[in-house]
Design a protein around this nucleic acid. Structure first.
Lengths: 408, 408
DNA sequence: CGAGGTTTCATCGTGTGTCGAACTAAGTGA
DNA sequence: TCACTTAGTTCGACACACGATGAAACCTCG
C-alpha cells in the first residue's frame, strides 16, 4: 500500500468520517444519529449521509426507539449488524495458531485453535483450516468474510513481510502476499505487539488513552508504543521492543546472545527456568499464577523480584514517554497481579514522579487474547481502509471539544 | 485554539496543500511549478491554484528561467518573497532575551539580544523592546510582522500558558494571552526543547528525518521527541524531558532534589562545577570547548566521562524509540565533538544494535540558535495555520512515493 | 382530541476542494 | 516555417462539508 503521500481529497475525508461514525457506533453499541452528531462532532447532514451509506452497504440494523418518555420524535437506534459479515483475527505462534471470527463490531462469534507444522507454508495451511472450520461452524462462506488480520511474533518490514521471526524460525517470508494469493479478501498482517496495542486501543484497557505503552509477554517479551493517538513503529520498526533492555549488568543469558535482558527474567520460559533453579517445577505463566494464588512463597518472592526489574524498565519508559497508561498483556497478564506491587514500589521512588500525573499500570483485560483481537483490529482497519498516516484513532474516537495537546 | 476535532473539510485540504507547497518552495529555494508538482506529489492543477493564491497574497516573486538550453517552454521560477513580511522568533531565558527577524522562508534578516528583568512582565517588556529595535533596524513596521513565536524554558500547559518554569521562576503565567494583548499579530509559544526540535526539523539537521530525538542543553538539559513526523509531547507534556533520568545510583546532587540525574553531569553549571573540583576554572560550554580544543587533559577526560553517561542514556532511548537520528542542540553543542567518541563507544557495545540500522548522533548545526529558530518555526506554523493534530511535517516535506511506515 | 412544541432526520443549495483532459504559452531544432 | 517539447492554465465532472429548510413523529397541555 504505497498510499503514503496519497493526496488528500474529499473522498478521503469521507472515508475518515465513515470510520469516525463506525467507531462511535461500535463503542456506543447502539446510538441514534443525533447521538452520533454529539459524539463525533460532525455535522448532522454529514452524519445523515454517512449513515445512509453504511446502511446501503448493509452494515446497519435499525431498531426503533425504546420510547424514553421524552418529548419529540423518538430516535431510531442504529446498531452494527451482527450478520453484516465477519472479521477474522488470527495469531500465529510456534506452537499455536489461534483464529477468531467476530462481527464487524468486533464481538466474538466463534473461535478455533490448532497446531501448526514447522514451515511457514504449514502454518498458513493451518490458518486456512482454521478459517474454514469457523466458516462451517457458523454456516457462512468466504463471501461473508470482510477482512482478515494476523498478528505474528516477528519483525515486519513493509507490506506485511516478515523480515525476521526468531521464534517461528522464519526469515523474509512475504506473508501478506502469500495470504493475498490464497484468499480474495483484504488481509492485514502485523507484529504481535503492535496488534496487541491496537486491540487495547480498540477493545481493551486503553480505549480512552491517547498515549500508552503495551508490554506483551508470551514466549518472548515484546512491546509497542501508541503515542499521540497512533501506533509508533520507529524508523526501523523496532520501537517499543523492550524485551532486550538490560536490567542487570552481568545478568542471565538471553536468547539474543546478550546478558541481563528483561526477557531473560520475565519471559515464560525464563520464569520457569528461574523457578526450577529454586526447586519448583511449573509449566508456564498459568501454572505459576496458580501457585502464587495458592501462596507458594518461593514463587511469590520470585515474582516480586522480577516485578521490581520490570518496574525499573517501566519507570524509565515513563520518564521518557510520559504515557498515561501502561498495559501488561499476553499470557504474561496471568501473573501481573503479583508483579504490580513491586512495580508500584519502584515507581514511587522516583522524585520527579510527584510532579507528574501518575501513570497507571494495568493488566490487560483481553489477556491471552490480546494479539488475536489485534488481528481483528487489523481486519477492521482494513475494512475501513484509511491510510495509516492519517489514522489518529484518538481523533476518531474522542469526544468532541477536548484539547489533549498542550500546544500553543 | 480549541481546534482539535475541527471538522475535516475541503478548506482544510487547501490549507494543507498550501503548507505543502510553501515548504517545498522554502526547501528548494527556488522552483518552478512543475518542480513543485514533482516534489509535493500534488496535481498540476492544484499546484497552479495554490501558487496563484500565494502570489495573490504577495508571498512570491517570480524570476524568469535561466535559459537552461533544454527544449520546451522555460519554467518561471518561484521564490518566497524576501520582502513579503517577516517572522519573529524569540527565546526567553533567565539572563537573556534573544530575538530574530527572518523572511517568511526563515532566512535571518536581523537579530537582537538583551537582558530581561526579574519578573515576567519585565521579560515581556524586554521582548517588545527587542522586536521594536529589529523593526526600526529593518525600516519596517508591525504591519510587516506576520507572526511571532517564542521558546520558553518551562513546562507549558494548554494555550501557551507557562505552567511551571523553575529557571525563570515563573509559575502559571498566561504567556500567550499576555502577548496577544500586546500585539495584534498571531503569537505562538512553546517549550524551548519542543521549539528546538521544530527548528531541527524545519531548518536543521533533521530536515529529512521522520523520527528523531533532540537533546538540548543550556542551563538545564531538556529534550524533545519528534516521532512519526510530528512532535510528541506526552500525556502531561513531559515527554522527552530526559534531564532527570538517573545515570548514577548515588550520584551528584541535582537541582530537582534527586541524585545522579543526567543534568547533574551535563548541564553547563554541572560541567563547570565538576571542572572546578578538578582544579579548572572555566566559565561555560564555550570556554570548556576552547580548553578542550587546546588539549587540556583534565577537560578531555571529564568530557569523555560525561559523554559515556550521556551515551548510556542515548542507548536506552534508541532501544525504546528506534529513531533515525539524535541531535544534540543548544549551547551544549559546543562541546559535542568531545562527547561523541564516548557516545559511539557505548552505542557500539549493545548487542542488538547490530541488527538495527545504526542511529546517527549529531551536533546541531543551529547550535545555540536552535531554540530561537524554533520560535521562527512556531511563527511559520502560525502563519500557515494548520491544526496541530493534522500536522505531519514529514507528510508535508517528504518526497512523494516513499513509504516510511512498515505497516501492512 | 387537536394545536403547539420538540426532537429527529432527510434533502437541497452553495462553496470549495481534487483531478483529468483539453488548451494556451513559449521556447528549441530541423 | 513547422513540428516537437515542456510549462502552466482553464474547464468541467464529481465529491465533500455544511447551513438552512422542511418533513416526520412523538410529547404535552389545554
Amino acid at each position: 500500500m504505497a498510499e503514503y503521500r496519497q493526496r488528500l481529497n474529499p473522498a478521503l475525508i469521507r472515508r475518515l468520517n465513515v470510520a469516525r461514525v463506525f467507531h462511535a457506533l461500535r463503542l456506543a453499541g447502539a446510538a441514534s444519529q443525533s447521538e452520533l452528531v454529539r459524539t463525533t462532532g460532525l455535522d448532522p447532514a454529514t452524519v445523515s449521509t454517512v449513515v445512509r451509506q453504511l446502511r446501503d452497504e448493509g452494515w446497519l440494523t435499525t431498531t426503533t426507539a425504546p420510547s424514553s418518555g421524552r418529548s419529540g420524535r423518538p430516535p431510531t437506534l442504529l446498531t452494527i449488524d451482527r450478520d453484516a459479515g465477519i472479521l477474522i483475527g488470527a495469531r500465529l505462534e510456534p506452537e499455536l495458531v489461534r483464529v477468531l471470527a467476530t462481527t464487524l463490531a468486533g464481538e466474538t462469534r466463534a473461535d478455533w485453535q490448532g497446531r501448526p507444522g514447522r514451515s511457514a507454508a504449514d502454518a498458513l495451511d493451518t490458518l486456512s483450516t482454521g478459517v474454514e472450520a469457523l466458516l462451517t461452524q457458523l454456516g457462512l462462506t468466504w463471501r461473508d468474510v470482510k477482512a482478515v488480520g494476523v498478528g505474528v511474533p516477528a519483525l515486519m518490514s513493509h507490506a506485511g513481510r516478515v523480515a525476521y521471526g526468531p521464534n517461528l524460525r522464519w526469515r523474509d517470508v512475504p506473508l501478506q502476499v502469500r495470504l493475498d494469493e490464497r484468499w480474495s479478501v483484504p488481509v492485514a498482517v502485523d507484529n504481535d505487539s503492535s496488534a496487541a496495542a491496537l486491540a487495547e486501543k480498540l477493545f481493551g484497557e486503553a480505549r480512552e488513552a491517547r498515549d500508552f505503552v503495551v508490554i506483551a509477554g508470551h514466549s518472548g517479551i515484546g512491546g509497542a508504543l501508541y503515542l499521540g493517538g497512533r501506533l509508533y513503529r520507529g524508523h526501523g520498526g523496532y520501537a517499543g521492543e523492550i524485551g532486550h533492555v538490560r536490567v542487570e549488568p552481568e545478568g542471565r543469558r538471553c536468547g539474543c546472545g546478550d546478558r541481563g535482558c528483561l526477557e531473560a527474567y520475565l519471559a515464560e520460559r525464563a520464569l520457569v527456568a528461574q523457578l526450577r533453579e529454586r526447586g519448583r517445577r511449573l509449566r508456564g505463566y498459568e501454572a505459576i499464577a496458580a501457585a502464587a494464588l495458592a501462596g507458594d512463597a518461593e514463587v511469590l518472592t520470585l515474582l516480586d523480584e522480577v516485578g521490581e526489574r520490570l518496574g525499573r524498565v517501566i519507570a524509565d519508559l515513563i520518564d521518557v514517554l510520559d504515557p498515561e497508561l501502561v498495559v501488561l498483556a499476553g499470557a504474561l497478564s496471568h501473573v501481573v497481579p503479583w508483579l504490580l506491587p513491586a512495580i508500584e514500589r519502584v515507581e514511587g521512588t522516583e522524585a520527579l514522579r510527584a510532579y507528574r500525573g501518575r501513570c497507571r499500570v494495568k493488566a490487560s483485560t483481553l489477556g491471552t487474547e490480546a494479539v488475536t483481537m489485534g488481528g481483528v483490529g487489523l481486519a477492521m482497519e482494513a475494512v475501513l481502509s484509511l491510510p495509516s498516516w492519517l489514522v489518529d484513532q484518538e481523533g476518531l474516537l474522542a469526544a468532541p471539544g477536548r484539547e489533549p495537546t498542550r500546544r500553543a
